[in-house]
């Protein structure tokens, strides 16, 4: 019995807990991508860099707060700085929209032109981040590192395996739940949110109903900036802030959005968790789990790992390819016919 419990704790510690944290971060990122896609109808290549910028703003403000001696006790100071970071990246997104994207809406450019334009924006954001804070790896988290330490868990339960929950992991999940709840409340309960869904669903009819497209676009950028900042900050607190990482996150985020069906917010959340858990399940070494479950004589020699962790990016790509082959509209596609 204890062996089974130990095996379960192992899985909880290395797959379930980090999966929920990472999945929350991906889901928030994919939500931003899917909202922009739903309203502006293009894949925003600059979204990863928007996350980096948002996280950077938050980090700079949290440094300032720390220097003033203001903090949240056990929680990371970055949480206190988050609203300011969101505001800063909202400003930036609005300026970008005014200066860059608005023109292409006026000339009704094709989606592919938008993607190229977003490449230009990506370059600029990328340069901005590196120009302001440099390319170095920085620790964003402070306060209490763990909610539950592995050692405490072991002494409390008497098991051999420990279950550790980092503060940043819990913060990720809680923040994501709050952000998603607020987003869905906005989309489903407010007039403006509904008009956004209407515009995303049927642009012509929305225009006929007197919905102002510029206003919808504006709100979309505000939401995308907020979601990107929260996602980027949570990832930064959970791992660390490295400017180049956010471009590598682009693939899992897009994969999550496509799995969920582009333009479908609920699907994006599901997609985020599908990608996160697949990555962890496929790259986890099950040797010790198997050792607990099987008699000693059958103990495996290898790591019992499907794919080395180096290749976790291949997991999101494989899922992406499978979805494109089987159901390009996404596994959680809305009925729109």
């Amino acid at each position: 019995m204890a062996d089974v419990l130990n095996a379960l704790v192992l899985i909880a510690n290395f797959i379930i807990v980090p999966g929920f944290a990472y999945g929350s971060q991906l889901a928030l990122g994919a939500l931003g991508v899917t909202l922009v896609f739903g309203v502006l109808r293009f894949s925003n290549i600059a979204h990863g860099e928007t996350m980096a910028l948002g996280a950077m703003f938050t980090m700079l403000i949290s440094w300032w707060l720390q220097s003033m001696g203001i903090g949240l006790g056990p929680l990371p100071t970055a949480l206190l700085a988050l609203p300011f970071g969101i505001a800063a990246s909202m400003c930036l997104c609005l300026i970008t929209d005014r200066a860059v994207y608005r023109y292409y809406r006026r000339v009704k450019a094709s989606p592919v032109i938008y993607i190229i334009v977003s490449v230009g924006v990506m370059f600029i954001y990328n340069g901005l981040v590196r120009f302001i804070v440099g390319p170095a790896d920085r620790v964003m988290v402070d306060g209490q590192r763990f909610i539950m330490k592995a050692k405490d868990f072991k002494t409390a339960t008497g098991l051999d395996e420990g279950l550790a929950i980092k503060t940043s992991q819990a913060v990720s999940v809680v923040c994501a739940v709050i952000a998603v709840a607020m987003l869905f409340w906005f989309l489903n309960r407010t007039r403006t949110g509904k008009s956004m869904r209407a515009y995303s669903n049927n642009e012509d009819l929305a225009l006929l109903s007197g919905i102002n497209p510029e206003r919808v676009v504006l709100i979309t950028w505000l939401l995308a900036a907020a979601l990107a900042t929260v996602a980027g900050t949570l990832y930064g607190i959970d791992k660390s802030f490295q400017p180049f990482v956010y471009m590598q996150l682009l693939l899992p985020i897009f994969a999550a959005a496509i799995v969920g069906g582009f333009g479908n917010p609920l699907g994006a959340i599901a997609g985020g968790f599908v990608i996160a858990f697949s990555e962890l399940v496929v790259t986890f070494a099950y040797k010790r789990v198997v050792a607990y479950l099987l008699p000693e004589s059958l103990e495996p020699a290898g790591l019992v790992q499907l794919l080395s962790t180096d290749y976790k990016i291949a997991v999101s790509f494989t899922i992406l390819v499978i979805v494109l082959l089987i159901k390009p509209t996404g596994l959680f596609a809305q009925r729109t016919t």
Binding site: F42, I115, I258, A314, S316
Partner: peptide, 28 residues
């Protein structure tokens, strides 16, 4: 084969993915 014939965005994302994977394979 996988991504052509779908929306333009899918080719972009699929090629972004394959190029990252190729680099990871060559690196590891």
């Amino acid at each position: 084969k996988v991504s052509l014939g779908l929306r333009a965005d899918y080719l972009a994302i699929a090629t972004l993915g394959i190029s990252e994977i190729i680099i990871f394979i060559l690196k590891f």
